[in-house]
């Protein structure tokens, strides 16, 4: 940030004090994007690649900061109480926004946010080891029915998207009480547990699955994936809504009560940033599945997800 920019921002701030509405002067100071995880993780990289294009679209400054801990709830809890002037935005995933507030005491909930835009969404897949005897979901159901209580499924932690994927799968197939859950600390150790044969089933996004020798058996998407045309969707193998679709999505949220003009401004800037060449190239390199929704769409989607995941959480017994 140059001195000149400083001065112009100062001037803009002064102008705002004398004249009128928030939206005209917005942004009056640098915008802070809060990453609820450590620097260097997948979410952090996504936001750091997104920030410069977002700044360009807003014609202002944007900086990224990290607040980690409590599976993302520490950052969200801190942001929930901040002033709703639109200068502080958080990037919350499905877990932070809709799952954690329903499984533990968090200082925020459904109505703490003004959803701004959704950025990415990847469907999760149910997979097994490449050398495992299970070729289809029917094989899995048959084996579990034959030996109830013998098979273990993994997760990256209680209440994580990986856990809900497994719960959705086994509840949807009606055999949830015949498999056991073995949580790990993160997806990495869980994938290692898969490779070593400690657990038999795991569910995560395509990106994670690509790191090992795994075989997908179904995908929690509304259509089959281009990359795995032979893998059926959850609905095709008989899992009914709302358990048949599960996405690891994430988007920008501001504290509740942001001025509608400012929300619209941010949402437009978000769209422009997502469509920028630089961000598209980033998404291609990292296999990020971009999924833009504007403020209104995202608001409706977020509330629907909150409800639907509540049902899943109940099934998981959390």
């Amino acid at each position: 940030m140059s001195i000149r920019k400083h001065l112009s921002a100062l001037a803009a701030g002064a102008a705002m004090l004398t004249a009128g509405t928030a939206a005209q002067a917005f942004p009056e100071r640098p915008i802070n994007l809060v990453v609820p995880f450590n620097a260097g993780g997948g979410t952090d990289l996504l936001l750091r690649a997104f920030a410069p294009h977002f700044a360009e679209a807003l014609e202002g400054d944007v900086f990224v900061s990290n607040t980690a801990g409590g599976a993302g709830t520490v950052a969200a809890g801190a942001l929930a109480g901040q002033s709703a002037d639109g200068h502080q935005l958080g990037y919350w995933s499905i877990t932070v926004a809709t799952i954690q507030p329903q499984v533990r005491e968090t200082p925020y909930g459904l109505d703490s946010w003004t959803p701004i835009c959704s950025v990415a969404a990847s469907p999760t897949l149910f997979f097994v080891n490449a050398d495992s005897p299970f070729e289809t979901i029917d094989d899995v159901v048959a084996a579990v029915e034959e030996n109830p209580g013998q098979y273990l499924y993994g997760s990256s932690g209680p209440g994580a998207i990986t856990h809900l994927t497994m719960v959705a799968a086994f509840s949807g197939l009606g055999i949830h009480d015949k498999v056991r859950h073995l949580p790990f600390q993160g997806s990495g150790p869980a994938l290692q547990g898969m490779a070593a044969g400690t657990i038999q089933f795991f569910g995560d996004t395509e990106l994670l699955m690509a790191s090992g020798d795994f075989r997908p058996l179904m995908v929690f998407n509304d259509t089959r994936l281009d990359s795995f045309p032979d893998v059926p969707t959850a609905a095709e193998v008989g899992i009914e809504a709302p358990l048949n679709e599960l996405y690891l999505w994430g988007g920008l949220f501001a504290p509740a009560g942001v001025d509608p003009d400012v929300t619209a401004r941010l949402s437009d800037a978000c769209e422009a940033a997502i469509n920028s060449e630089g961000f598209q190239a980033f998404a291609e390199r990292t296999n990020t599945v971009i999924d833009f929704k504007d403020a209104q769409e995202f608001d409706a989607f977020y509330r629907a997800q909150y409800e639907a995941n509540g049902a899943l959480i109940e099934a998981a017994g959390l």
């Binding site: 450590n38 620097a39 260097g40 993780g41 997948g42 952090d44 990289l45 690649a49 990495g188 150790p189 994938l191 290692q192 490779a195 990106l207 790191s211 090992g212 980033f282 390199r285 990292t286």
Partner: peptide
């Protein structure tokens, strides 16, 4: 294996993926 051993190698992993 694509499995990070600690927080720092997790960052390494992210760098690789990013590129």
């Amino acid at each position: 294996l694509g499995i990070p051993g600690d927080a720092i190698t997790a960052v390494m992993l992210a760098t690789l993926t990013l590129h």
